[in-house]
Nucleic acid binder design. Structure first.
Lengths: 386, 386
DNA sequence: GCCCTACTGTAAGGTTCCTTTACAGTTACC
DNA sequence: GGTAACTGTAAAGGAACCTTACAGTAGGGC
């Protein structure tokens, strides 16, 4: 350990606790801040003066009502820093810009086919969003990016993303060089899991999983309140999961033709719907079934059974408290599908989680990306090192 | 956050860091302690005086060599506390007594059929071990117990243990009443995983799993350096894992006839050995194969293939860095089996951990139980509350 | 054999950070 | 109009750590 003055540590900790508190609970008075952080009124006042001098907090109003003078309310200065978050999909790139308080200022979009390479695509989308937000790219403290594929947790770089041919190892370095600031790349499903945890169905739950059922299949694993990425960033790649009734997967081919992926996913469900004599695509049939169409009932049961086959294995390994169904299929299936999946899991093993549909509105991947971007931006802006 | 004097926290932290350091690195001088904990020589001296007054550390010798006066070496007082650890098996109960430094003083054994109930069995075995260690039961700060079955992480009580009919919910309460001190009950496979992590193959590894292949089948999941128990304590009950090629499990029957358990385990291997025309039991055949018997080769290959079918699913979900094969089969299979399992996993999915045999000698369950017992005893003895 | 260097261990004084106490000033309620 | 409850600041104090200083001890070089 460093021989550094250890007493600074406690002040830094208190400063950061106060900032986090103002971010989560909104503006507070000196006295209330002291109570919440565990400091005396006097020390809380000194703390706020200090943060005010650094330009991080300001008086944002006065508290009305109650006896005595109207206490000043202190809040975090929104312009202390900005972040940009992106969701990279095969056919669309979405960006969102927010200030340090987490307030979303503007969004931007781009068709990736319009850009020659990832760096150009990111730069164009971010430029679009920052312009609408009325800030410059230079004011961004951090860029966070959600993509399909596997990210190496050691380097933070992409290992491979099947659906995005241009996004391969080295992209991180290119982006860092181009933007000259922290860049975070994270798997899209993992980000959806983080979004669910910070503002959705798994909020406050220690151990949970989020199953992403869409074109691809994925799983976000939350253990003890933290996202588990795995040694090589491959945790949750359940498209490859061997499931009884599917053909045994082989090698590291695309999971499209392997295992769990062959049973569920949007494509597999289209096929399944036809097999049940239904018209329309799989997701449409899920919606019909949820809305009460009796013809689509057996189809929904079979879908629940298939999902349970894979999820039961996951529950046997992890025993999560909660299992969220997300992605287009999870959202379409809603409470009805979730209840059936839970029942089917119960028939397959001893560990039965509560199964629920996602509770995030909007794009959960973008939301999660914003989350991790804000986390690192705050670490940077609020730290006393700079 | 309590309004309590926050400044005590830093002193307590330093005291504890010093104690942990003396436990892991052995006796140290004042000056060296200061360097390692990050304190000045003066403060380190005050710290040691304080801990000496509390009877926790003492001078255990002097450092020879080097200039100047021979510095006094300070170490933790072994008699500051004792713990007992137990491993409950269907046919044998083993106990081990250690002092607060982790030095094992004595062991004891008992045939559980000699005792009328769990409390009696534990009391008799512990009495045996403490007597041999030259201490009394009253000197024990904590008892830790490893059993098969599921433990509820909320209450710490047993939910059920198929192999131990007398060990059921309520045992924890009975033991607490009888011994009037902290009692910890933990799943045996989880304890083996902890032992492996603190002194075995997964030492220093953040994400790992330990597969226990014996009469029963189990998995210890270590995520980010910490044991993952699951919401209901059911994480790692992989006997129920659905695996292609095994019959689909059903309900919460004993896993004996279900899924992964039906493919591997000592009994399944006996059957498998006969099917391959081998004489002797399954474990014996594993040993023969490892020692180079060509007739047993195909048997070992099939065993590795079966293990990989289940482990591949686990790797797809968790992507561990290391996978340990433990239990009687894992130990017998050694490096040879581990290498084949790793190769087989590589053919089944994208996440391939390093597969190794257990590196713990002796009873890993007892070792793990001692570990958690020492952890809580130290928390208690070293805390400043009492 | 002597001196220098490097180390131990303690004493004295200083810094940082937080706390309590005190008080002047402000507002709501009775 | 008085009292109670609150805000915000000033002054004094305590807890924990730090540096500096110094007396004393052991090894190494000449």
């Amino acid at each position: 350990m460093s021989r550094a003055p250890k007493t600074h540590l406690i002040r830094d900790t208190n400063d950061r606790a106060a900032l986090d508190l103002m971010l989560s609970d909104g503006p507070v008075t000196k006295t209330r801040l002291g109570e919440l952080v565990g400091l005396s009124k006097v020390t809380a006042g000194q703390l706020l003066t200090r943060l005010g001098d650094r330009g991080l907090v300001q008086v944002v109003g006065t508290q009305q009502g109650g006896r005595g003078p109207n206490a000043a309310l202190y809040g975090v200065v929104p312009s202390a820093g900005y972040v940009a978050a992106l969701h990279i999909g095969p056919d669309q790139i979405t960006a969102s810009v927010a200030d340090i308080t987490g307030t979303e200022l503007a969004t931007g979009e781009l068709d990736p086919h319009e850009a020659s390479d990832p760096v150009e695509a990111v730069r164009a989308t971010v430029a679009n969003a920052t312009e609408r937000a009325g800030i410059t790219i230079e004011q961004l403290r951090c860029l966070s990016i959600g993509t399909p594929g596997m990210i190496d947790p050691r380097t933070g770089d992409i290992r491979f993303a099947n659906d995005l041919p241009d996004w391969r190892a080295g992209v991180l370095e290119d982006l860092r060089r181009s933007f000259q600031r922290p860049i975070l790349i994270e798997n899209d499903v993992n980000l959806a899991g983080l979004a669910e945890q910070s503002a959705g169905a798994t909020h406050g739950v220690k151990d949970s999983v989020l199953a992403w059922i869409d074109r691809g299949l994925g799983l976000a694993v939350i253990v003890d309140g933290r996202l588990h990425r795995g040694a090589g960033g491959g945790a949750g790649e359940i498209g490859y999961l061997a499931v009884p009734g599917a053909s045994t997967p082989h090698g590291t081919d695309s999971p499209q033709h392997a295992a769990f992926q062959s049973l569920v996913s949007v494509e597999a469900m289209d096929t399944l719907a036809r097999a049940f004599g239904l018209s329309g695509d799989g997701v449409g049939c899920v919606r019909s079934a949820v809305e009460g169409d009796p013809d689509a009932e057996p189809f929904l049961d079979e879908l629940a059974r298939r999902l349970a086959l894979g999820l039961a294995g996951i529950c046997v390994v992890l025993d999560p408290e909660l299992c969220v169904l997300a992605g287009e299929v999870g959202r379409a299936g809603g409470e009805v599908l979730a209840a059936r999946v839970q029942k089917a899991i119960a028939s397959l093993g001893p560990n039965v989680p509560t199964v629920v549909p996602t509770a995030i509105s909007g794009d959960p991947v973008l939301r999660g990306a914003l989350q991790i971007g804000l986390d690192t931006a705050r670490d940077e802006v609020f730290s006393n090192q700079g």
